[in-house]
Design a protein around this nucleic acid. Sequence first.
DNA 1: CAAAGTTCCTGCGAGC
DNA 2: TGCTCGCAGGAACTTT
Length: 301
Amino acid sequence: MPELPEVETVKRGLSSSLLGKRLVEVVVRTSKLRYDVPSTIHELVQRKLVNIRRRAKYLLLDFEGSMVMLSHLGMSGRYTIFSPDEVQRVFPHTTNGGQLSAFGTTTGYEGKHDHLEFKFEDGSVAVYTDPRRFGFIDVFTLDQEGEHPRLVQLGPEPFDDWDAKDFASKIHKSQRSIKLLLLEQSMVVGVGNIYACEALHRSGISPRTLGTTLVTQTGKPTKKLQILVHEVQDVLKEAIDSGGSTLNDFSNTDGSLGYFSHQFQVYGREDEPCLKQGCFGIIERIVQGQRSTFLCPRCQK
DNA sequence: CAAAGTTCCTGCGAGC
DNA sequence: TGCTCGCAGGAACTTT
């Protein structure tokens, strides 16, 4: 599910329903995600959730007393919010502190991979679900954030500090393909496999193009690279907008909505016709860095 | 067989 | 020659 737009969508969903509320209980049903869930997560209890931020594909939840909960969704992580009403309706047996997940089957709610439950003072509950358990949680104080090993090595946010000039300076002598460079979170953050494919297709650039060939001898970005930077920003923005508008129609937060509502031009469309106006190529799938890349060999050179 | 992500390890070539 | 260093590529984590 989660590349930058989906994480941003989750951030907005969590914000709209939980901001300003006091956390009153955390239930850790599975302590082993990608890493162990730190026991300090319980120190968040009795604190108000005062802010929610996103950095790259990470969510950062600020609690009273400068405590921060970092959440990465991995490949399959998601949050589901239950309003106080829904908790009553979907889990009628649990009004006196029972765990939501234990009562899923009769209501159609499948709780098998629900690893964490966050209960708030007004009765709202946020459930973290992650079948593959590639996601992880960390808890620390605000003053430790600057040295956090996961955050320290991150490159620029695509909409802020990033531009073609910056990108060119990082890739000018790289022999790696531009597709792999886009996925590198030290180059620019938030781009994952789907949007890397989409941005390259929009730009008319072959994913096999070597980084160094997109920079001139004097170190300046080529026209193609400038277009690519623009298209990366555009495709991410459109996806955020599409996720956001979808979210308005649902009371529950579900980041996966962001993907389903968005129409991809190349991703997952092997052997189907290229959708670019006037191009009648057929989409191919190749493997780069052990991951699928989708491209149109006719309009991506 | 493949999957939206990230970290860690190994091997190679350049340069000292 | 032998040692680092940085880059590039691959394995691994897990479940459906």
